[in-house]
Amino acid sequence: MPSSFRGLPPIVWTIFAGTIINRLGYLVTPFLVFFLASRGVTGADTSYVLGALGAGNLLGPAVGGILADRIGRRPTMLIGLIGAASAQGALFLAPGVWTMAAAALLISAAGSTVSPAAFALLADAVDSDRRQRAYALFGWGVNIGTAVAGVLGGYLAAVGYWLLFAVDAGSMLLFALVVAVRLREPKHTPTTEAATDGIGYGVVLRDRLALLLLPLFGVQLFVYSLTEVALPLAVHDSGLSPAVYGAMAAVNAVLVVALQPFATAWLARLPQLAVQSAGSALIALGVALTGLADGIAGYTLSVVVWSLGEVAVAGIAAGVIANLAPAHARGRYQGAFSWTWGVARFAALTLGVATYTTLGPATLWWTALLAGTTTAAATLALTTRVTRRTTHTLAA
C-alpha cells in the first residue's frame, strides 16, 4: 500500500471497506432506463423517473448535513442506507410511473444523505494534514466498487432485473451492518458557537470563503460530470457502438484504480489548491478533446487526459472544505459540498444535454474548456486566503 494511506486510523479503513461493499451494488441506476423499458415505460415518462432521481440528489445532501450535526454521523448513515435499500424494493414493485418516480426520489435522497455524514466522520477521525488522503481513499473505494459493479451489472441484468435490485439493496444493508457494528459516534463537546449557529446552514452561508470556493468547485464538478452525460452522446453521434462507450468507461476505471494511490502519495507534498487547479484544468482539457475525437483513438486520448485530472484532484475539494469547517458544523459543510456535487450532476444532465442538442456539441466543448480553466485559475488565486484561514483555525 502506498505511503499516502499508511497510518490512517481504523475508522477510515472501515468506511473504505464499507464503501466498496456499497458500490459493488451500484447496479440499478446505470441500468434504470433498460429496466423502465422492460416495464413499458418509455419516452417522456422515463424522463419523469430520471428527473426524480436527479432531484433526490439535491434534497439528500442538505438533509444529511443537518442530521449529521444534529443526531450524529452514525445514525444518519444508518437512516440513509436502510432508507435507500427499502426504496429499492419499492421501485421494483412500483405499479406505475408516478410511484416509480416517488421511489426513485427516495432512493437518491436517502442514499445521498450518507456522504455528508461519512465525510464528517472522516474529518473527525483524522487531522487536517491527512484529510485529503482519507477522502482520496474513500474515492478510491468508490471507483473500485463501481468498476466491478459495471461488469457485474451487465451479467445480472441479462439473468433478470430483480437481481440488480436484490444485490443493490443487499449491499446497502451490509454496509449498514458494518456501520452499526464497527463504527462508533465521536464525542463532541458543546461549544458557544454550536449554540449560537443553530442547526441550519446559516453557519455555511455566513462563511464568505466557503461561498467563494463552493461555486468554483461546483463548476469544476459540472465539467467532470459531462464525462458521464455528453461523452455517450458524442460516441453515439460518431456512429460507434455502445460497446465503445463501455470500453471508454473501462479505460477510466483502470487508470483511476491503478494510479490514484500512487498519485496521492506523490502529490501530497504539493500545495492542495495548486494540485486541484492543475487537475481541474486537465479535466477540462480532456473533456474538450472529446469534440476533436472521431474514432476510438481520439476518444481514448480524451478519456486518458481527463482521467489523469480526476486522479490528481481526488479528495482535495472535500478536504479543503473540511478544514474550513468548525468542528460542530462539519456535517453541514460537507452537506453543502455534497449538495454542490448534486447540483453539478443535475446541471450536466439538463443544461449540458440541452446545450449539446440545441446549440451544438462544439459550444458545449468550448464552454467546458473555458469554464474549467477559468475556475481553476480562480481557485488557485484563493490559495493565500485558504492557507491563512486554515492556519488560524488550527492555531485556535
Rank of each mutant, 00 (worst) to 15 (best):
L214P: 07
S47R: 14
G298V: 05
I11C: 05
H392S: 13
A102M: 12
P116S: 00
S38V: 00
V223Q: 08
W339A: 15
S112R: 03
S307M: 09
A123D: 01
V256R: 11
P190W: 01
L174H: 09
G145S: 15
G60R: 01
A44Q: 15
A169V: 06
V254Y: 06
A102T: 12
S112F: 06
G298H: 07
L380A: 15
L91F: 08
R385P: 08
L221Q: 08
A134I: 05
R70P: 06
A336S: 11
T76P: 02
Y299I: 04
Y48A: 11
G83R: 00
P9C: 04
T383N: 11
T373Q: 10
A90S: 11
L301A: 13
A395W: 06
L105S: 05
F5A: 04
L59H: 02
Y356H: 02
L211E: 09
L213R: 07
G331N: 03
P271T: 02
A94E: 07
R206E: 08
I79Y: 13
V159E: 14
V219P: 09
T146A: 13
F34C: 00
N323H: 11
W13V: 06
A293F: 11
G60A: 10
A52R: 05
A134H: 02
A84N: 12
A149Y: 06
T358E: 13
A194L: 00
A158W: 07
S38P: 09
A101Y: 08
T192I: 05
R130D: 07
Q272E: 15
Q220C: 14
T384E: 15
Q272W: 07
L233A: 13
T393N: 15
F262E: 02
L209H: 14
A348I: 00
P361W: 02
V126R: 02
T355L: 14
G64Y: 02
A376K: 08
G309N: 05
G331C: 03
A322F: 08
F34W: 07
N252V: 06
D129S: 14
R131A: 04
V251K: 11
G331W: 00
H328R: 02
A317M: 12
V148I: 13
L349T: 04
A322R: 03
D127L: 08
L226C: 11
L53N: 15
T387P: 10
V313K: 07
R206P: 07
T374F: 07
L308W: 00
L209C: 13
G54P: 01
R39K: 14
H392D: 14
A348G: 15
A68I: 01
G25D: 10
R184P: 04
G96W: 03
R206D: 08
L211S: 12
R269G: 05
M1V: 02
G198H: 03
V178H: 12
A268F: 03
L370P: 11
A314L: 05
F337I: 00
L8N: 05
N22C: 07
